[in-house]
């Protein structure tokens, strides 16, 4: 793993929505080529972290650096470039429901490249195969797909333009254990085959421990514990143990 300049460097971030503070003086680094998983309770702002990385949300204080460049200072052209290099897979897939699977997968290609229809078709087919889907679903509408298939189409859409980083927002939420494992394997496969850096936000401890090089635990609006899966497993702090062993914070633990 590369120990040079981090891909993402979140520095002293504070972020609030109205009176609800989500982050307070939070810092986090994502290293090149690693899979970093962010775990934490529901509604604590894990997805906000991903959104700040690609400029969909801005911090109230602090800075977000992508390979040394501040996302906050980026022009709309630079943001556009950033978003071709950093892809995001949304929690519900966020497939465009008025478009076919092919139109969804080829969206970024149409937007950012001069590819012909045939080339886009070939690339879409390649991406669908990569995520374990058959090219015969190209003409299907998203409404006719199962939850697991939607997530995989969303994944195919995000890798179509060959990003350097993929951000996964709750990739296994709502899926059965078998599909969850499949998505977990997919994340590892893409990291291995495409060499991408991955940031995964999840509640799913099996996925977190299975796919991660490092895990960051979101507690009290910061990431006080960041380490390898083994290091995280060995943490004695009760709030971390409660979370990874499935005892919820909602019960006041």
């Amino acid at each position: 793993m590369n120990t040079s300049q981090p891909v993402f460097d979140l520095q002293s971030i504070s972020k609030a929505f109205g009176k609800k503070a989500v982050y307070s003086n939070m810092s986090l680094r994502v290293k090149d080529g690693e899979t970093l998983t962010i775990i934490g309770g529901s509604g604590e702002g894990k997805s906000v972290c991903l959104r700040m990385m690609i400029g969909l949300l801005y911090p109230d204080r602090g800075d977000v650096l992508f390979k040394g460049q501040s996302v906050l200072d980026m022009s709309s052209e630079q943001l556009r470039d950033l978003r071709t290099r950093v892809a995001m897979v949304f929690q519900g897939g966020a497939l465009f429901d008025s478009m076919t699977v092919f139109e969804n997968v080829s969206f970024a290609l149409r937007e950012h490249t001069d590819m012909s229809e045939e080339q886009m078709h070939a690339r879409s087919e390649e991406c669908l195969t990569m995520v374990g889907l058959d090219a015969s679903i190209m003409d299907h509408m998203p409404a006719s797909l199962s939850g697991g298939m939607k997530k995989r189409v969303a994944l195919a859409r995000s890798i179509a333009i060959k990003p350097e980083v993929i951000l996964y927002d709750e990739p296994t939420t709502g899926l059965d254990p078998s599909n969850s494992n499949r998505i977990g394997e997919m994340i590892m496969k893409l990291q291995k085959e495409l060499g991408v850096t991955s940031v995964v936000v999840t509640h799913d401890m099996t996925v977190a421990f299975g796919v991660s090089d490092r895990i960051a635990v979101l507690l009290k609006k910061q990431f006080p514990h960041v380490g390898t899966p083994d290091e995280i497993r060995s943490i004695e702090a009760p709030e971390v143990r409660d979370f990874i062993e499935g005892r919820t914070y909602e019960n006041g633990a």
């Binding site: 556009r80 978003r83 995001m88 949304f90 966020a94 497939l95 465009f96 970024a108 937007e111 333009i161």
Partner: peptide
Amino acid sequence: SMKVTEQIDAIAALGAD
């Protein structure tokens, strides 16, 4: 509907306006 299903964010995340 696109907003609540994050499709508008997805358009932005794919580098489109």
